[in-house]
Simulated scan of single mutants.
Amino acid sequence: MKNWFILLISIFFFSCQQKENKKASAESAESPMPVVQKEKKQENKQIGDTIAMNFKNEENVFSAEGHLDSLNSKVYVQFKNEDLGELNAQILPDAGKGNIRFNQIIFPDKTSDGPFGMDLKIPLKQKGTHVLIIGHSLMADNPYYGNFKVQLNIRKE
């Protein structure tokens, strides 16, 4: 009787394993997973309070979307300049208008200039990493909270 019981248990386990293997092979035969590789679009994204401008779009312009809220009242836009030239920058709020501006630009030698408006046109006389600080004007009421788009165009001399 003991041998008979062991034989039944071993047959039971063997049959259960066979069903699982058949199910796995049947599922893979019925629905093969097509391998589609999507081309990853390179885009500049805001992470925390910083936007790293690493990729230019088709028009050779740095472009990114950002967000100002009560936690991140300033957004830091970093870009690397390899050539001397002129920086033309714009902030385009989703609402059309708002109390948002370029507060400051920090040059690679740690000097700074500002404040500016929603448009910025300034010569770049240094190579290296520049930082633009975007926020609301402290001289005006109703700070801007919401989404905006920032565009940077660097014209070489």
Rank of each mutant, 00 (worst) to 15 (best):
A64D: 01
Q126T: 02
L124N: 01
L71Y: 02
Y76W: 04
G96M: 09
N60E: 09
V35F: 11
V61W: 03
Q17E: 08
N103M: 10
N103F: 00
N21E: 06
K110G: 04
F62Y: 15
I105H: 06
F55H: 00
K22H: 08
G117K: 06
K125A: 15
F107S: 14
E58R: 15
K125E: 12
S25E: 13
E27T: 06
N88C: 12
I105Q: 03
F62W: 08
V75R: 00
N44T: 00
N88P: 11
K19P: 02
A24C: 03
Q42M: 10
K38N: 12
P34A: 09
K121E: 13
M53Y: 06
V75L: 02
I122W: 04
D119T: 11
P115Q: 06
G98V: 08
Q17K: 11
K74N: 07
Q42N: 12
E65I: 04
N57I: 02
P34H: 10
V36C: 07
E65Y: 04
N88Y: 14
V77N: 09
Y76H: 10
K22V: 11
I100H: 10
A64S: 03
A64W: 00
P123Q: 13
K22S: 05
I105K: 00
N44W: 00
E43H: 09
N54S: 14
N88H: 13
N81C: 15
L84I: 15
L92G: 14
L87N: 05
I100K: 07
A29D: 07
Q104M: 14
L68S: 03
T111V: 12
E30T: 05
D69H: 03
N99K: 12
V36R: 10
K110E: 07
K74C: 01
D69S: 04
K23R: 03
P115C: 01
P34V: 11
N103W: 05
K80Y: 13
V36H: 09
N57G: 13
K41G: 05
T111S: 14
S70L: 12
P32E: 08
S70D: 12
N44I: 02
S112A: 11
M53H: 10
F62G: 03
K23I: 09
L124D: 01
I105G: 00
F79Y: 13
D109N: 06
D113M: 11
D49W: 01
R101M: 10
H67T: 07
K80C: 06
A24I: 11
S73C: 01
K97L: 14
D109R: 01
K110L: 07
Q90Y: 14
K22I: 11
D113F: 13
Q46D: 03
G66K: 03
E27P: 00
L84E: 03
M33Q: 10
N44Q: 05
E20F: 09
G117V: 07
Q37W: 10
